[in-house]
Design a protein around this nucleic acid. Structure first.
Lengths: 235, 235
DNA sequence: ACAGGCGAAACTTTATACAATCCTCGCCTG
DNA sequence: CAGGCGAGGATTGTATAAAGTTTCGCCTGT
């Protein structure tokens, strides 16, 4: 976990250090280790990854473009805090795009892809089984990303990556706590429909899956601004 | 706590030099003054805008994220050259998103918005009339962006901005030269449908408009890239 | 004692300097 | 004379230093 600030890097694939920073921060946000509103200081992150602020800044700008980080002029970067209006927009966009994506996924069906999907379902089930909420959240998003990759449409894939990242923040902020485990069964059903090349069923299941996720949200205006920087730093 | 009682605004173009570089380069690309494959040297652009390479680099990275610029490692930034496959993806995405956008535009209809739309139509007609192809191209894209702004959905707006920018490059690369002036009448029809709050008609007209634009393209495999390069150098 | 302003510290923003990489072109060899 | 090879130049990638802005504590005046 602790990255060392070694001047002469020995890393095998130290080629794309910006990418590694971006992935690391993204994972932390998507797994809900970094809470909305948390300040992302350039020095702080640079120290963690052993890089200068130039690279950190590049990564943060990319995340800002993806919508999961807000950059305020002369103030710094913060984990985004989507509003209920944002949430509604994100899920409307997902309801529009994802049925089309599964359509294309059906067209691209192959044993190799079915294998990847089922392996992913197994991972999801395992994480859920051992109560790993963080992995669960991440894998749930990864499932949708995987289907988008399968569709072969790079534009939809790029859009969906953004929507998934924002969704994760939205779920963190607005999920009702009384909801039980969700999703895995839906995902399995979607995979089954894709394997059977049943477009209509695949679309319908994806749509109802998204509806259910959104139904579990309580989109009130946020009054609780409890940002716990201490928690993040302590961990 | 009054966290953000005053948004402090984002200073549209007062001190945002990165934004000015981005807008400038974008406009040049969208107006077809910069052709696909053109090298965008950092020093070169920095000289033009009187800024250091730091800011130029930031702007180029944003454009790369929008898909109209390609950045090759240790090579530099180039105006993107969408493939026919890219073109099909872009227009499929537009056919999916834009009908929904006009739906929302109908919901948001108001005298002020109708005024803005009609003023825009007048601008378009004027540019077409005086044969200003560059302004025509830019304004044609701006029309779609305006409708997206009217819809009030920031997610759709962001997505569409990307799609429009890419479309402009695609049209430049693959348009049949024998096609006459297009679009303005369609745009007028769309505005009329929006004003009448006729969702079905608005959607249908937008869809047929996009179909017509795509029908004017000749999406062959780019074996003629080298020939294009000769054109660029000769021009 | 409290409100308001002054000043210093911390952070972001921008510029510049240094290092690494790639392309070009001339030279050498077969 | 053709083709490979290496040095030089140019350009990008990264780090560091200077400049500007915001924030927060402290001090003063009422």
């Amino acid at each position: 976990m602790a990255a060392k600030s070694r001047p002469k890097s020995d890393a095998p694939d130290a080629s794309d250090r910006v990418g590694r920073i971006r992935e690391g921060v993204t994972a932390a946000i998507l797994e809900h280790r970094l809470l909305p509103g948390t300040k992302l200081g350039e020095d702080e992150i640079g120290e963690i990854y052993g890089s200068s602020r130039t690279l950190v800044r590049t990564a943060l700008q990319q995340l800002a473009h993806e919508g999961i980080v807000n950059i305020e002029k002369n103030r710094g970067a913060f984990v985004a805090r989507p509003t209920p209006a944002d949430a509604r927009e994100v899920f409307e966009a997902r309801r529009l795009i994802e049925p089309t994506i599964v359509d294309h996924a059906v067209d691209a069906v192959s044993p190799a892809w079915i294998g990847r999907l089922q392996r992913h379902l197994a991972e999801e089930r395992e994480a859920e089984l051992r109560g790993d909420a963080r992995a669960s959240v991440r894998l749930s998003g990864d499932f949708h990303r995987l289907v988008a990759e399968m569709s072969g449409h790079s534009i939809y894939l790029g859009f969906l990556k953004e929507l998934i990242a924002r969704s994760s923040l939205i779920i963190l902020l607005y999920r009702r706590h009384d909801t039980p485990a969700c999703g895995t069964d839906h995902h399995a059903g979607i995979v089954a429909a894709i394997r059977k090349r049943d477009r209509a069923a695949a679309r319908a299941q994806m749509l109802s899956h998204l509806d259910e996720i959104e139904a579990e949200l309580f989109l009130k205006d946020p009054a609780a601004d409890e940002l716990r920087l201490a928690d993040v730093l302590g961990a």
